[in-house]
Design a protein around this nucleic acid. Structure first.
Lengths: 197, 197
DNA sequence: GTCTATAACTCGATAGAC
DNA sequence: GTCTATCGAGTTATAGAC
């Protein structure tokens, strides 16, 4: 049912998945190539048949994830929705990403600041900037359209939004009682309506 | 004006402060004892005249900070306020802590999960549990008293609250344009009233 | 209180056999 | 595709001189 076309799909991506889980659990720096090899049942030297370096593993993980995520964001931004509806859609897409790419989001959340210091991961900084423009643009448009409260400190709300969405990766567990749609619903209710009676 | 009583107060706490900044900026694992010594203008071996190990440095930083923070929390909890007022006070005290102990909060936010795996840092897990009880207790009481919206998923709101407050350490800069009281005001408005028009 | 010198160890990565 | 064997760099920590 699978394969038949691509040359070496299985083993490589399998190893990458193992590395992703370990990076997410312990952090990039706290995970050794020997840890990864042990978890895969091979020796550390054998990893270098598949990958150039430990850095290139995390690079591939983050780059693939971010490209896919931004395909969704771009689609939402270009869609025929009001600013507030777009905001809701972006929040939902983000929680969906936490569900589908849990390890990658965790790595991004925990290690991106450290990795962004290297030339190789400069794209992380660029994506962050694009992300900021997307959210602040939607918030500003929402205030202008009258959907969101006037006088909002857009910059501050953006930071709360961004952090609250992504930090959920620390407690959310895929396959648990809550679906990403559940979490997004609850979160949007709090954000939009508040918790006061 | 200082000293006169304690035996060796100055140099030791100075070194600890330097270590705190580096741990906060780069992470515990990414900071070497040589980095700390360099920043202090001495050689790495000399650090061991003041501290047993690198671990004992971060231990002292986190323990001192948490003890002080919980003194404030306990005071608020025991005070004569309504649940909602206590919730607001705890949020304000937390942003105050981000302002006054920025490095310690950043270390706690970034490295606590990793450190908690060692016996030595078991108290981190205990504090987390106590923290959860404090917040969920206040939320439950607030719903019961009618100050907070009925039907709140207390467990979920707790997680959002906890994470959103502490993750602010990633962008908040002490001495900047926003005081911790400003941030707390804005945050509580969003949390309690929402951003919808 | 700091420096010199170094032990003991772990890490990422490589070369070549199988 | 994996293993054997190992290099070289970097890490925490120590012992003793100054």
């Amino acid at each position: 049912m699978s394969a038949a076309s691509t040359p070496e799909p299985s083993r490589r991506s399998e190893l990458l998945g193992i590395a992703a889980v370990l990076f997410a659990e312990r952090g990039f720096k706290n995970t050794t190539v020997r840890d990864i090899a042990d978890a895969a049942g091979i020796l550390s030297g054998s990893l270098y048949h598949h990958f150039d370096s430990k850095e290139s593993m995390v690079d591939e993980l983050l780059d693939t994830f971010q490209t896919e995520l931004w395909a969704r964001y771009d689609e939402i931004e270009a869609s025929d929705r009001t600013p507030k509806q777009k905001l809701e859609a972006v929040v939902r897409a983000s929680f969906q990403a936490i569900d589908e790419h849990h390890s990658e989001v965790a790595i991004f959340q925990n290690d991106a600041a450290y990795l962004a210091g290297f030339d190789r991961f400069a794209y992380l900084g660029e994506r962050n900037l694009k992300f900021r423009e997307l959210w602040t643009g939607l918030l500003t448009a929402g205030v202008a359209s009258g959907e969101l409260r006037a006088g909002l400190d857009v910059e501050l709300v953006y930071r709360f939004l961004r952090d609250t969405v992504w930090v959920a990766v620390r407690w959310y567990r895929p396959g648990g009682a809550l679906t990403p749609a559940d979490v997004a619903d609850q979160y949007l209710t709090i954000l939009l309506e508040g918790i006061s009676q």
